[in-house]
Design a protein around this nucleic acid. Structure first.
Length: 209
DNA sequence: GATAGAGTCAGGGTATTCCT
DNA sequence: AGGAATACCCTGACTCTATC
């Protein structure tokens, strides 16, 4: 296989972190599924392979070295979450500016300063929120949240955080982003729908994909 | 003609579902 | 429960095609 092609495929894997062969088949579009399997097995010297329900791969040291990636992936319980993240990536047509684990940091002016100004000290506070992924489409920013096994209580907290920060998020992106949420069941989808009432959002359950 | 890329078919392995 | 049937995933072997 040509080096260029190897690097291209390894970069794709690097960008997603962890990916199943089935997902690679949809992303790379190398022809038949059989052929994707073959390509992956040819690249195995650069990959760690995990067999659970299906074969999933991520870059090993050689692979990272070849494409100069600093991002080391360790085998973890987060794999399922990352694979679901990929499903969203595929659903949106593999956006070229897709970024995982995107940190949004904002500074908020305090609502009440009680008229006190302390010299040399800023009373603004910083807040961060990490989206599972961010991408743009037709010029619009999309923030992606993947709900796998998080408790609904945690989900409520996170959505609340988005609501609190939404004004600043808007001004940071210079536009109204869209919150895209993928969840595991219709029941949760309904809960998210009511939680996100006032946010521009797109909520889907994985069964719809 | 050698090589790489790609398709088809068959079969093994394992998980899931079905049936008694 | 436990064995049979089914479904799904992965791989090997063979073949064809394009390109150099």
């Amino acid at each position: 296989m040509k080096l260029e092609r190897i690097e291209e495929i390894l970069s794709t894997i690097d960008r997603l972190g962890v990916v199943s062969v089935k997902q690679l088949h949809e992303i790379l579009r190398l022809g038949s599924y059989r052929h994707t399997c073959r390509v992956v097995s040819q690249l195995e010297e650069y990959l760690n392979v995990v067999r659970s329900q299906q074969k999933i791969v991520y870059l090993n040291k050689e692979g990272r070295q070849l494409i100069g990636s600093e991002r080391e992936i360790k085998k973890s319980v987060l794999f399922d979450h990352m694979l679901l993240n990929n499903e969203a990536y595929i659903y949106y047509g593999c956006p070229s500016d897709w970024k995982r684990e995107y940190t949004i940091e904002i500074t908020q002016e305090p609502e009440f300063s009680f008229g006190i100004q302390i010299k040399g000290m800023s009373i603004t506070k910083k807040k961060t929120i990490i989206s599972d992924a961010v991408f743009s489409r037709d010029g619009y920013i999309h923030l992606v949240e993947i709900d796998n096994t998080r408790s609904m209580q945690d989900n409520r907290k996170k959505i609340q955080k988005y609501k609190e920060m939404w004004t600043e998020i808007k001004s940071q992106f210079g536009q109204q982003p869209k919150l895209c949420i993928f969840t595991m069941s219709e029941k949760r989808k309904r809960e998210f729908l009511s939680l996100c009432e006032k946010l521009p959002c797109d909520i889907k359950s994985f069964y719809e994909l």
